[in-house]
């Protein structure tokens, strides 16, 4: 989430990274979904609030970037923009 914001892209991410607002909703490209940690119960509940949830939906604030995720591609979901 912070990487997206720091890059100047249009993302609301209002709660600051604690899965409390669903305004950093992204779609993860298929080849990367299995490399991410599973969705927690808290994230899952909050994703239910996000617009147009899909199988590959994640809250970007819950994706912790590691070296294994170098090259990760996500798309901003509807309603995540400011």
């Amino acid at each position: 989430m912070s990487v997206i914001r720091d890059a100047g892209l249009n993302i609301t991410a209002q709660c600051g990274g604690c899965a409390a607002c669903a305004t950093c909703h992204v779609y993860v490209e298929d080849e990367w979904t299995s490399k991410l940690k599973p969705v927690s119960d808290v994230e899952d509940a909050m994703l239910d609030i996000a617009e147009e949830r899909q199988e590959n939906s994640r809250l970007s604030c819950q994706v912790k970037l590691t070296e294994d995720l170098d090259g990760l591609t996500v798309r901003l979901a509807p309603g995540s923009g400011f």
Partner: peptide, 12 residues
């Protein structure tokens, strides 16, 4: 929108 006027964190 990176301000605190609407709070931040779990009580946003």
């Amino acid at each position: 929108n990176d301000h605190l006027a609407l709070n931040v964190g779990p009580r946003l």
